[in-house]
Simulated assay, not measured.
Amino acid sequence: MLDQTFSAQNFRRVYDIENRRGRNVDRAYFQLLVDASARITAASAAVRAARKAHVGLADDALNVILHPLREALRAERANRETLIDTTMADIAQQVLDGYQLQLVERSGPDETTLYTLPADPRPYFIGKQIQHNISRLYKLKAGNRRAIVSQLFDQLNNGFRQFCVRTDVSSFYESINRSDLVKELDNDQLLSFGSKKYIKQALSSYGELSVVRTFGTDRGLD
């Protein structure tokens, strides 16, 4: 059974995944972790500098010099891991203590208005956990762009006359009935109570900010 909880363990998983994807979560939210990473970099540089400064030294003598530097590097790495776990536990506890998800308004392209999550680690991790829950429960996966382009290329080069029509749904997000969406959420048997709660809070916050009580959902949530 999928663990959908907003726990320190799940937030740590989110943290690791997002960093592997190239998003610097530390720089966005956690200056203490930025500083911890800097100390690791400095400790690693000290090991390399010692090796370079003692080229040709016998292995035993070199190890005497490198040992304390390596231990310092290990200590900094361990300290960062502990700090990450402590940080995730603190965020999870704040969420557990009754954090309310509220959107903020900002300007988007072409003078559109976006309603998005605030620059705060709590809604960030809540949002990413909900994304994970929905993706895993409903097996959602974006199509392979290379495969799509290849299929389209083959289709357009089959010798038949082709017409391309570019269309778009006008105000798609604004046309969604939130009341119907909430009913669908309530009837859903897969999503956890917590996931539903925060989705409803986001929808409710959108209604308050946009002053449109029935229709429309937020666009721009990350």
Results as ranks from 00 to 15, higher is better:
residue 2 L to D: 11
residue 2 L to Q: 05
residue 3 D to K: 01
residue 3 D to S: 11
residue 4 Q to V: 05
residue 5 T to I: 02
residue 5 T to F: 01
residue 6 F to E: 02
residue 10 N to S: 05
residue 11 F to G: 00
residue 12 R to V: 09
residue 12 R to F: 02
residue 13 R to P: 01
residue 14 V to G: 02
residue 15 Y to A: 01
residue 15 Y to P: 05
residue 16 D to F: 11
residue 19 N to S: 15
residue 20 R to P: 10
residue 20 R to N: 12
residue 21 R to K: 13
residue 24 N to L: 09
residue 24 N to A: 14
residue 26 D to Y: 08
residue 26 D to W: 00
residue 29 Y to I: 08
residue 33 L to W: 04
residue 33 L to H: 01
residue 34 V to D: 02
residue 34 V to I: 12
residue 35 D to V: 02
residue 39 R to Q: 12
residue 39 R to A: 08
residue 43 A to W: 01
residue 45 A to K: 06
residue 45 A to Y: 09
residue 45 A to N: 13
residue 50 A to Y: 02
residue 50 A to K: 03
residue 53 A to K: 13
residue 54 H to G: 09
residue 55 V to L: 14
residue 55 V to F: 07
residue 56 G to P: 03
residue 58 A to T: 09
residue 59 D to E: 14
residue 65 I to F: 00
residue 65 I to T: 03
residue 65 I to P: 00
residue 66 L to T: 06
residue 67 H to D: 10
residue 68 P to A: 10
residue 68 P to G: 07
residue 68 P to L: 10
residue 72 A to N: 10
residue 75 A to G: 08
residue 77 R to F: 03
residue 79 N to M: 05
residue 82 T to R: 03
residue 85 D to L: 06
residue 86 T to N: 02
residue 87 T to H: 06
residue 90 D to N: 06
residue 90 D to F: 09
residue 93 Q to W: 00
residue 94 Q to Y: 01
residue 95 V to Y: 01
residue 96 L to R: 15
residue 97 D to Y: 08
residue 98 G to C: 10
residue 99 Y to M: 09
residue 100 Q to M: 02
residue 100 Q to V: 13
residue 101 L to D: 13
residue 102 Q to N: 09
residue 104 V to I: 15
residue 105 E to C: 14
residue 109 P to L: 15
residue 114 L to K: 04
residue 114 L to G: 10
residue 114 L to D: 15
residue 122 R to C: 03
residue 123 P to C: 14
residue 124 Y to L: 13
residue 124 Y to G: 11
residue 125 F to Q: 00
residue 126 I to P: 03
residue 130 I to Y: 11
residue 131 Q to V: 05
residue 134 I to N: 00
residue 135 S to T: 14
residue 136 R to D: 13
residue 145 R to W: 10
residue 147 A to G: 07
residue 148 I to V: 04
residue 148 I to L: 12
residue 149 V to W: 04
residue 152 L to E: 07
residue 153 F to A: 06
residue 153 F to P: 00
residue 156 L to M: 12
residue 157 N to C: 13
residue 157 N to P: 08
residue 157 N to M: 15
residue 158 N to P: 03
residue 158 N to F: 09
residue 159 G to Y: 14
residue 163 F to L: 06
residue 163 F to G: 11
residue 171 S to V: 12
residue 172 F to H: 07
residue 177 N to L: 10
residue 179 S to H: 12
residue 182 V to M: 07
residue 183 K to S: 01
residue 183 K to H: 04
residue 187 N to K: 11
residue 190 L to R: 11
residue 191 L to S: 04
residue 192 S to E: 03
residue 193 F to W: 08
residue 194 G to M: 08
residue 198 Y to E: 12
residue 199 I to Q: 03
residue 206 Y to G: 00
residue 207 G to V: 15
residue 207 G to I: 11
residue 213 R to M: 13
residue 214 T to Q: 14
residue 215 F to R: 10
residue 216 G to D: 01
residue 216 G to Y: 06
residue 218 D to C: 08
residue 221 L to P: 14
residue 222 D to Q: 15
